[in-house]
Design a protein around this nucleic acid. Sequence first.
RNA 1: GGCGGCGUGGCCGAGUGGUUUAGGCAGGGGCCUGCAAAGCCCCGUACCCCGGUUCGAAUCCGGGCGCCGCCUCCA
Length: 464
Amino acid sequence: MLRLHDTATASVRPVELREPGQVSMYVCGPTVYDYPHLGHGRFTLVFDVLRRYLLFLGLDVTYVSNITDIDDNIIKRAAEEGRSEEEVTEEYEAAWWEAMDALGVLRPTATPHATDYVDDMVSLVGDLMARGVAYETSDGVYLDVDKVPGYGLLAGQPLDSLRAGARVEGNDEKRSPLDFVLWKRAKPGEPQWAAPFGAGRPGWHTECVVMSLDLLGDGFDIHGGGQDLKFPHHENERAQAVAEGRPFARHWVHNGWVVVDGEKMSKSLGNFTSLTDLLAQRDGRAYRLLVLRSHYRSPIEVTAATIADAEEALVRLDNLARRFSLADPLADGGYVVDGVGAGADLDPSAVERFRLALDDDLDTAAATAGIFDLARRANSAMDAGDEAGAELAARTAAVLAAALGLAVRPADVAPDDESLALAAERDAARAARDWARADELRAVLSERGWAVEDGQAGTVLRRR
RNA sequence: GGCGGCGUGGCCGAGUGGUUUAGGCAGGGGCCUGCAAAGCCCCGUACCCCGGUUCGAAUCCGGGCGCCGCCUCCA
C-alpha cells in the first residue's frame, strides 16, 4: 500500500484511488518562455519516478501535464525579441521535450495546451460569475475567495495571515487581497480571445483546473507540482473547482527545491541553472540519480561536485552491467512492470525491500541504497564463484534501477579499429610477457580516452 | 509580522527511542593482479548547543543559536 505525503492534510497517508487499479495524475507543466532549468528537471524526475513506480505496481496510470503557452511572460518575451508569441512558445516547448527525453522522462499521456482550452475556460469563468463567486473589475474578472468554503486548505496557515501578508496592489478593485484573476482583459496588441465579459486571455490558475477536470474527470487521484505551487496556484485551482461544486484532487503531492549555495534557486533570484546546459555536458542519468538519492520533499543542492559524485556512482552500476552483460531494461524507452508479478526471475527479498521503501512516501534514497547493496552482493557472489546467485542479484539491481527510470548499461562506445588494433597488440605483448610494451600501450590507449582492463579474454576497453 | 521546515561522520545524503550497516563519493589499509583497473574485505567509532522526560535520545519535550522557505511571478 503506497503512502504519500498529502499537502491537504499535512500528513503521510495511504493513496486511495478513485477507481481500483487506475491512477489519474496531473502535474503542472512549464510556461514555455525560456529554457528549462534545474527545478523543472527535478519536478519532472520526481513525478516520473512516482509514475513509474505506480506502473511497476501494475496500475494503469493516466498522466496529464500541461504546457502553458499563453501568459504575461510569453507576451513580454515576444515583445522583447520582436517575434510572435507562437514563435516563442514553439522554440521553448521544443527545448522542453528535448530536455525531457535526455532525462529519460516518459512522455505524458496527454499534454494539453492552454490555448486549446480557452473556450472551456471562458465557460468556467462565465459560470463562476453566474454563481456569484466571481466579479468584474476594470481589468478583468476575479474570484471572490471569501465565497469559497475552505479556502486556504493548501496554504497551511490562517487566512488572516495570508491577507496580512498579501501584497497591496496599486489598482485595487479587488474585494480581498487574496482574490485572483480568472480572466485578464487584453491591452491593445496583446493576444486575445472573445468573451462575454470582454476580450482577453485566461488567468494562469484557470487553465489547470479546466484541463485537469476535462482530461481526468472529477475527483482525480493525484495533483503534483513544486512546493511553490501549493499557494497560491494550487489553492486557486482548487477554489475554482470547489466553487463549481466539483470534487478536485484527492491527493496533493509537492516536491522540494533545488538549492544553490543554500538558497532556493529561482528565476526571480537570478541564480537558476539551465537544464538544457547541464544535459549538454553531463549524462542525464546522473541528475536522475542525484534526485533519487534524496527524498523528494527535501531540498537538493545541485553543483558540479554533486553531479560528479552521482556520475561516479553511476560508473559503479555501469560496471556491474558490463561485468554481467546486463541488457538495459529501458532500451525501448518504456518502463518496468512489477518483476515478480510478471514472472521475471528476481530476488524476492530485494524486491520486497524496494517496495517497502517506496511505499513509505516514495523513499527513493532507501530504494537506491538497496540497489547498490545488490550490486555489491552480485560482485561478491561472483568473486566467490556463485555464478547463479551473482546473476540473480545483478539482474535484480538492473530491473529495480530501471523501475525508477535509471538505465543501467555498459554504456560502451564501440572502440574504433585503431584502438582495437592497439588492444590486440597489447594482448600479444602480454602473452609474450613484455610488460614494458604492454604498459606503454595502455598509456597510449589511455590517452585516447580508454580505461584499460585485463579481462579473461584479454584487453577490455571502456570509455573514461 | 504570520506560518512552516532544516542543522547527521572529509563531501553529498537517508533514517531512527535501544537491538543490524543507510547508500554513494573521496581517503587509508588489505586481498586479487606481471603492474594496474574493476571487484571484494576492513577502517573513520556522525547526528548544532543547553536543559528535561526515559532504564536508555542523535531520534520525544522545552529553551537557545544558526540557516532556509511560504505569505508575491516562480517547479
